[in-house]
Amino acid sequence: MSEPVLATRNLKKAFGALQATDDVSIDLRAGEIHAIIGPNGAGKSTLIAQICGGYRPDAGTVHLAGVDVTSLSTAERAQRGLGRTFQISALAMEDTVLENALLGAVGHARKPWRLWGAVERDRSLRDRAMEALARVGIADLADQITANLSHGQRRQLEVAVALTLAPKAFIMDEPMAGLGAEGSKVMTTFLDGLRSEAPILLVEHDMDAVFALADRISVLVYGRVIATGSVEEIRNSREVREAYLGEEA
């Protein structure tokens, strides 16, 4: 089996007496969508923060494309190919949709120190930004102020910004949230096609989307991975049903 694009090994993080993640080891392989599910407070957000560099783990490692990135900052991990979307949109709300996408393009081109020349007139940056917006279906909103977008459109813009980075792996934190039935369907189809470009670690509460998309699912409960397997394996797992779905065995 090929080396995973992204791998965590025995990640641990505690906040006081609360063990938010406990010995979490997961792999993300090329071409797959690996979903992380779990009830609220299971440690999903902490895990993502550890993978992306927001939290330093108490123990364990994070490897991206075979390189140990545990000690690197969020920005350095992004430079090495980690693209993420946020659960709560983190966008420049006063800026236009295009400007938000351009920010990703500037980051990808490593051009933040160019003090001269209008960014919107840079053909290569603009093309990259517009292409990303077009791919998620919001190119027609390019000149809109981001604060005026609907919640669902902001989710799409989040994904577009991540796309401009052409990452080696995507970390997507609830990309379906607030999209509605139709929007969720469109996003599911889009992510389905995106996996061939770069694998996706998907944290999602929309179980229909998870079951439709995931090649593998890991179930996180109280900071521990209690099961990893295919959709069928997870659906049929008694342990998962007991711990997560709340069913009696």
Binding site: T74, V106, P112, W113, W116, V119, D122, T164, L165
Partner: peptide, 28 residues
């Protein structure tokens, strides 16, 4: 005026509004 519309100005303006976003596109 030039700074404001440059790639630097765009990134700086975003760093004011959403520093976590700026970090996740690989900028400090």
């Amino acid at each position: 005026s030039r700074l404001r519309t440059s790639p630097f100005g765009l990134a700086l303006n975003a760093a004011r509004q959403a520093p976590e976003r700026v970090e996740t596109v690989g900028l400090n």
